[in-house]
Design a protein around this nucleic acid. Structure first.
Lengths: 334, 334
DNA sequence: CTGAAAGCGCTAACAA
DNA sequence: TTGTTAGCGCTTTCAG
């Protein structure tokens, strides 16, 4: 591997164009008031040398960077990757590149990444917090870094937030299961340290209470992961009187539950009906196809990016909350 | 949003600890030879101020950063996200954070990101190149940035590479289809500008030629995306004598093909058998479950990260190529 | 309109 | 062992 020539600096360009570094900077940053002839020389010299300004140095000087950090809890969950696409497309159109960090639902990893992100002086942060009340974003916010929360709320912090109406989505799912005649409807929700886990449980509970059917013994708190959904479903099927339906609060846990039910030799939806949260391209090809509450993932990312841009551009209004709608997609599983 | 106090700098810590900035730097970087008492004062002062060194400034000074760039062609493809997890886990254990860039199979986006990455002076780059012969990584390599290619080879560049034995995987898939009695076996491969697309086609072709069954009219070059797989499958089914089997060169195109076949009212595998590349958690729950060539995705990421670390640590041997094995997982679709 | 000079926050030579 | 000094590559006053 040929470790070759030092990369050109602004001084090299200045020398070649026979101007000062300041002029090179002005030309390359598009500031006007530079003689057209000099500007031409600068551009030529820069092109000949293959010059690209060093973003590190520039960031140090300007105290800002053209990077966004996106901190999500699970890079392997298509819900988040789709959201990231939305964020990225907006960011890119404004010249930002995206640094993606994966916390794996771990508060510890989240703290580490927040520290890295603070040290990197990113222009803004979009985060799906691992916890409602323990996320360590205080210092970042205090120092004025624009932050937008997605998918989950953060307590005690005034940050812009984009999420869906989780309780409403859960209600739609539960009502649907009631409407097809199910009477022992279980719920596998995510961590109750997240607003998403709490609100989906809340919507489920409200629905069943309205029908006088709520039974706490049919509720399981899990972790938004496939294994967790599997274990909770197994647990529910071990009950003396097992449920005849399950509402599962995200895509990965739904897959785990489906796996568990099939492993038990039970049929979906005949023995156990299943309604999940989050839609997927493959959800209509499973056996049976999955009834789900779909979220506008890409749009969620776009909106988060828009809020971030507004803050970066200096908007100082009170924290906003954007709530998007979900949609029940009835297929075969429930 | 309270835009509060300026973040503490090394000078603030030095002042508070009544030492020089150099001493603070030495203590915080763990260089020995510092009086224990001073060191203690420094650590206390740093803690009290909540001081964290500015990575931007540090990178400018040291000419290196603790960030890796991972450039992939599709963030929505679980193959890549799983690889990224492998890279990330290794990187994190050595203190690197990962900046993920998504090129969407576009050479233009790839070039932009490569420029960004070069400007950011990242410590290393892992890339899944959008093209075999047009990827613009030359300058990066020439400037001595460690680069590792994954999943696909790059021509004319001496870079470490980690991939699977694609031709072998394709052969296994094709042989399997032959062994279950199929005679008109089609192939939907990815871009022939990628070695992956070419090699999977090659394996397929070699297999069929050995059986005297190769028929060029049954080959389609597509784009590794769901839509592309869908379109190619439709196209193949429109043939006067349609195929009785399809080998599809990645997960997303396989999903697209399945969709197309079902839309035509044909049954899998009775009318058309289907074997895909890449396994997924949901592949055994589709109707029918999918026969696939599985790749060791996480391991692929780990190995790529290991090679990158070796280069960063100064290893100067000739470029290496690590080739991992695939595994045929026979299920119901073929 | 252009250049000289200062300085972003840090580390690494060099002195003391 | 510690401090002083210089400088990474850039932008941005401030003079001219």
């Amino acid at each position: 591997m040929a470790r070759s020539e030092r990369r050109p600096t602004i001084a090299d360009v200045a020398e070649r164009a026979r101007v000062s570094a300041a002029t090179v900077s002005r030309v390359l940053n598009g500031l006007d008031g530079v003689n057209e002839e000099l500007a031409l020389r600068v551009r030529e010299a820069a092109a000949e040398l293959g010059y690209r300004p060093d973003e590190i140095a520039r960031s140090l000087r300007t105290q800002r960077s053209m990077t966004w950090a996106v901190i999500i809890t699970d890079i392997q969950n298509s819900f988040y990757t789709s959201v990231v696409r939305g964020i990225e497309d907006v960011g890119r159109s404004r010249g930002y590149s995206v640094m993606l960090c994966n916390t794996d639902e771990s508060l510890e990893k989240e703290s580490e990444y927040l520290a890295v992100v603070a040290a990197a002086r990113v222009a803004g942060v979009v985060i799906s917090p691992a916890s409602w009340d323990e996320s360590d974003i205080g210092t970042l916010v205090d120092r004025g870094t624009p932050v937008v929360a997605i998918d989950r709320r953060i307590s005690h912090q005034e940050v812009d937030t984009v999420l869906v109406d989780n309780a409403d989505g859960a209600r739609k799912a539960t009502e649907h299961l009631v409407s097809i005649g199910r009477r022992r409807i279980a719920c596998i929700t995510g961590s109750l340290h997240t607003t998403t886990g709490r609100e989906r449980l809340l919507g489920y509970r409200q629905s069943l209470e309205a029908h006088g059917m709520y039974d706490e013994s049919l509720v399981r708190e899990s972790d938004f992961k496939e294994e967790g959904g599997h274990a909770s479903a197994m647990d529910l099927m071990d009950l003396e009187t097992p449920p005849d339906a399950m509402f599962v609060a995200n895509n990965l846990m739904t897959l785990g539950a489906l796996e568990a039910i099939k492993a038990r030799g039970l049929r979906v939806p005949d023995d156990v009906a299943l309604v999940g949260f989050d839609d997927e391209p493959w959800a209509e090809f499973t056996q049976p196809s999955l009834t789900v509450v779909a979220q506008p993932t890409y749009e969620l990312g776009r909106q988060a990016a828009d809020l971030l841009l507004a803050r970066i551009d200096g908007e100082t209004s009170a924290a906003r909350e954007v709530i998007l709608r979900t949609e029940l997609r009835v297929r075969e599983s429930g």
